[in-house]
């Protein structure tokens, strides 16, 4: 028998670090993904620090300045002012909070619910799969906007109701994705190896399958963040999302509709913000897809 040396190697953080830098190297190969990442990071920073950095905090809280209404973009008001004389730049900055955080909440809850349902359906198969997937199919047939309107009508408008309503129609997509991935991974040899070792299903699912299917979930989540931001804005636009005075991109756009085209900045600026957010998340998602493609690994 061999003797065990008394000194153990340190848990090698450098190996993990190298994996990350390797992944980032591949990510950098496409400058579009880097732009996507930059936009997303900027958006997140803005959303977090918006209350601190806005030039006119009182406008965000609902304060008006009718004397300065419809001032075009300039050095004092970067994005101009709206019909109430509020600084559009401040509103757009703070508006990122609602869009990003409710988008994130939608995607996260969809991942948790959908992931759980999909993993169980995919791993066990048979009638469990049958039942869970038929429920999933049923929910997929409901358009999210319509359901959100129905929920708003029944439970009243508000951020929380909106998130719940969108999530209900979003998790089935994740359930399907995760189910497919689990079924694919279930027959991989290292899973068979774990079964041969005597591992039970919670261990196999949690320790072996889930870590190995995170990549497509993360990619989809990133792409979906863009659509979530868009959906939240749409609901705001039709007036069943966030209520003024809380600034939100969709609501800002909806209010500014009346002032087009003479006072274009009131609509164009929140519109550009939505555009940038969606574009950023999509570019990031595409970049992540390239990095996480298992074929590029090894």
């Amino acid at each position: 028998m061999t003797t065990t040396p008394s000194t153990l190697p340190k848990r090698d953080q450098s190996a993990r670090l190298e994996n990350w830098s390797r992944a980032f190297y591949r990510f950098r190969q496409s400058w579009l993904s880097v732009i996507g990442l930059a936009i997303v990071v900027a958006l997140i920073l803005i959303a977090i620090f918006a209350p601190v950095i806005v030039p006119f905090p009182d406008h965000v809280a609902g304060g008006t300045n009718t004397a300065a209404r419809f001032t075009p973009p300039g050095s004092q008001y970067w994005f101009g002012t709206n019909a109430l004389g509020q600084d559009v730049f401040s509103l757009v900055l703070v508006g990122s909070q609602v869009s990003l955080f409710s988008g994130l909440a939608v995607v996260l809850s969809a991942i948790v619910v959908g992931g759980l349902v999909g993993a169980i359906a995919g791993y066990f198969g048979g009638w469990i799969d049958e039942i869970l997937m038929r429920i999933t199919d049923l929910l997929l047939t409901i358009p999210s906007l319509i359901l959100a309107m129905a929920v708003a009508a029944a439970l009243g408008t508000g951020v929380f109701n909106m998130i719940v309503a969108i999530s209900i129609t979003w998790w089935p997509a994740y359930a399907r994705l995760v189910r497919g991935e689990v079924i694919g991974k279930k027959e991989e040899q290292f899973i068979v190896a774990a079964r041969a070792l005597g591992a039970g299903w919670p261990r196999i699912l949690g320790r072996h399958i889930l870590p190995n299917i995170m990549s497509p979930i993360i990619v989809k989540a990133s792409l979906d963040m863009g659509f979530a931001v868009l959906t939240v804005a749409s609901l705001g636009f039709v007036g069943i999302g966030v209520k003024p005075p809380t600034p939100e991109w969709g609501t800002l756009l909806s209010v500014a509709r009346a002032d087009m085209p003479d006072y274009w900045w009131t609509a164009v600026c929140p519109g550009c913000a939505i555009f940038l957010a969606v574009l950023g998340f999509n570019l990031l998602g595409d970049g992540l897809r390239d990095v996480m493609d298992p074929k590029a690994r090894r």
């Binding site: 190996a15 991989e188 040899q189 290292f190 068979v192 190896a193 774990a194 070792l197 005597g198 591992a199 039970g200 261990r203 320790r207 072996h208 870590p211 190995n212 690994r297 090894r298």
Partner: peptide
């Protein structure tokens, strides 16, 4: 197993892979 590329979980360290049967049993 036959394929040493497919039979090891790519997301686990060598320590965790070799220790897994010890954890299970």
């Amino acid at each position: 197993f036959q394929d040493p590329y497919a039979s090891l979980d790519p997301r686990m360290t060598i320590h965790d892979i070799v220790a897994e049967p010890l954890v299970i049993h």
